[in-house]
């Protein structure tokens, strides 16, 4: 009985993508109320804009380092550290392509009247939503038709004197006025890429529901390979004033939820205005970095046993992020996790480290694979038992360490 509770079975076949027939729409539902839209993996076969060449896992992990470093830097900055006003110790190679490369989940929305279908990445780590607009002088190619403001009867650009534009400037995302006194925005990401255009509003269609006066950036120029695939834009779900979640809070409710599909060939959902019952809840911690949603991780359990990690190691809090791929832990916590996990994996030979992963195994010829359970314990005694997909990625423990306990 103890063994059954403390181990999980990982089938070797689950480490590889299966052939899937995407012509069969998969049932998408939320366990709660609100407006629900399907959510797909960006690079999966069921993506509305499937990648012609998906990045390798190694490349994704490399990009993930920049995402994590950017969040840490930005958070540290607003909390009194140097933040992104100081030279970063992360030098971004010019071949990186995009700091948005770690975003993996897409929703399809309609913008305008009549609604024009647009495929958008979701991101809980930023607030300003944007979509490529016609005319776009420096934009990437996209699968859907370019959103054309002139074809929408409900589109309007915010004047510079509007409160929305003032608020945008206060959040450091204003970018002056156009010659026609239209409010200009700028979004910047971790690799120095950016997008600019006109801050606007239009009708947003989500499934069978619609939101009037949705505020977003009408992107007219991008630099630094903002996106490298066929997606049309980004939907910010952060905690700041401009995010979709904040904008719909008054009409749909001050909550949203998502279900991230476990594999690229399966679907999940995003629900805005979610009912909040039936969840194990921990306190949400906010800071002066409004986009970020914080939680307090208190302990880690491996194989049902709590690791001996001083609570102070976790005192700097953790950010819940849909756009970071791999969970980052303070080194002291990661070392304890890695050691305990290895102890429970003695039957499998170690394998070479891969990128940011240093706890890897050789599963050749073995199936099924028994792995120790891993649970995260958050404040209030909330225990989140991770699925096998959240413990092992490829053949490695899917966690990484920060550079030091104080970072």
């Amino acid at each position: 009985g103890d063994n059954l509770r403390s181990y999980k079975v990982l089938h070797a076949g689950s480490l590889k993508s299966a052939t899937v027939n995407c012509s069969q729409p998969k049932a998408v539902s939320s366990s709660s109320g609100g407006v629900t839209v399907p959510l797909h993996h960006r690079h999966g076969p069921c993506s509305p804009v499937p990648s012609t060449e998906a990045p390798t896992l190694e490349e994704m992990l490399r990009r993930d380092q920049f995402r994590a470093a950017y969040i840490t830097r930005k958070y540290s900055g607003v909390m009194g550290g140097a933040g992104d006003v100081e030279q970063s110790d992360v030098t971004v190679p010019t071949t990186l392509g995009t700091s948005l490369g770690t975003l993996e989940y897409l929703i399809t929305v309609g913008i305008g009247s009549p609604a024009m279908t647009q495929t958008m990445l979701i991101d809980t780590g930023s607030d300003v939503s944007w979509v490529q607009c016609k005319p776009c002088s420096q934009c990437h190619t996209q699968a859907d038709s370019l959103f054309d403001p002139s074809s929408s009867s409900t589109y309007s650009a915010f004047p510079c004197s509007s409160s929305a534009c003032t608020q945008l400037r206060q959040s450091q995302q204003g970018n002056g006025c156009s010659s026609g006194s239209q409010c200009q925005y700028i979004v910047k990401y971790g690799d120095g890429s950016s997008g600019t255009g006109t801050y606007s509003s239009d009708k947003l269609t989500l499934g069978s529901s619609s939101v009037s006066y949705f505020q977003f950036g009408c992107s007219q120029s991008e630099s630094g390979n903002l996106l490298e695939d066929q997606t049309d834009g980004l939907m910010g779900l952060g905690g700041g004033a401009q995010s979709l979640a904040t904008q719909t809070a008054g009409t749909l409710g001050k909550a949203f939820s998502y279900c991230l599909p476990p594999t690229p060939d399966s679907s999940g959902f995003l629900t805005l205005g979610a009912a909040t019952s039936g969840f194990a809840k921990t306190q949400m911690l906010r800071s002066s970095a409004p986009a970020y949603y914080g939680v307090l991780l208190e302990a880690i359990r491996v194989g049902g046993r709590q690791l001996n990690i001083p609570a102070s190691v976790f005192s700097a809090k953790s950010i819940m992020d849909s756009g970071t791929i791999i969970t980052r832990l303070p080194p002291t916590a990661y070392s304890a996790l890695s050691a305990a996990f290895k102890a429970g994996m003695k039957q499998y030979p170690p394998a070479q480290p891969m990128g940011i992963f240093d706890t890897c195994f050789n599963f050749s010829g073995q199936s099924p694979i028994n792995i120790p359970s891993v649970a995260l314990v958050f404040s209030g005694g909330v225990v989140v038992d991770l699925a096998t997909d959240g413990i092992i990625l490829d053949s490695c423990l899917a966690f990484a360490a920060n550079s030091d306990d104080s970072s």
């Binding site: 366990s31 994590a68 969040i71 840490t72 993996e104 779900l237 905690g239 979640a245 809070a249 409710g253 001050k254 909550a255 949203f256 939820s257 998502y258 279900c259 991230l260 599909p261 476990p262 999940g268 909040t276 039936g278 969840f279 194990a280 809840k281 921990t282 306190q283 949400m284 949603y293 991780l297 976790f314 700097a316 809090k317 953790s318 950010i319 819940m320 992020d321 849909s322 756009g323 970071t324 791929i325 791999i326 969970t327 980052r328 832990l329 303070p330 916590a333 995260l376 909330v382 989140v384 038992d385 991770l386 699925a387 997909d389 959240g390 990625l393 899917a398 966690f399 920060n402 970072s407």
Partner: peptide, 30 residues
């Protein structure tokens, strides 16, 4: 600062209850 990444969130419905000041988890919901 730690970051809870999306690999660890897979198969869990994650709730951002901004009004209620809570983050919720529903395991096996996906």
């Amino acid at each position: 600062l730690g970051i809870i990444g999306n690999v660890q969130q897979r198969t869990i419905e994650v709730l951002y209850d901004v009004g209620g000041g809570a983050v919720g988890f529903k395991a096996g919901a996906c």
